[in-house]
């Protein structure tokens, strides 16, 4: 299992995680070692396996009896790093 530094950089950018240059090499080695270990799943005999799925039942609640609007807003907004009155502030996207 060979992982290149550019693979680490690609994964980090997909995952939106900045990694420093000195960490990239450690990550490359760790990922190689771990992936080579977990690759043993490829050796397991997976015969004509039909996953046994239990009986399905609806776990979603009915969309009814909404709570009063705004009762949780202050609790939730107070956790935001940046807000303007009742809005969360983010940088321009477009």
């Amino acid at each position: 299992m060979s992982i290149e530094i550019k693979d680490v950089e690609h994964l980090a950018s997909l995952a939106r995680v900045a990694v420093s240059d000195n960490e990239k090499n450690d990550l490359k080695n760790d990922l190689e070692e771990i992936l080579s270990f977990v690759s043993q799943v490829k050796e397991a005999t997976v015969d004509s396996l039909t996953p046994e799925i239990g009986t399905h039942y609806n776990v979603m609640r009915a969309d009814e009896n909404p709570h009063e609007a705004g009762i949780f807003s202050e609790d939730l907004l107070s956790s935001a790093p940046s807000r303007n009155e009742n809005h969360i502030v983010v940088k321009k996207i477009l």
Partner: peptide, 24 residues
């Protein structure tokens, strides 16, 4: 913002597992 917040907010092992999960 995303890259830096997640890069600094998560520790080493968490970053490692996120990358591993992204790979698989």
């Amino acid at each position: 913002d995303y890259l830096q917040s997640r890069g600094e907010g998560f520790g080493r092992e968490v970053r490692r597992r996120i990358l591993l999960g992204t790979y698989v």
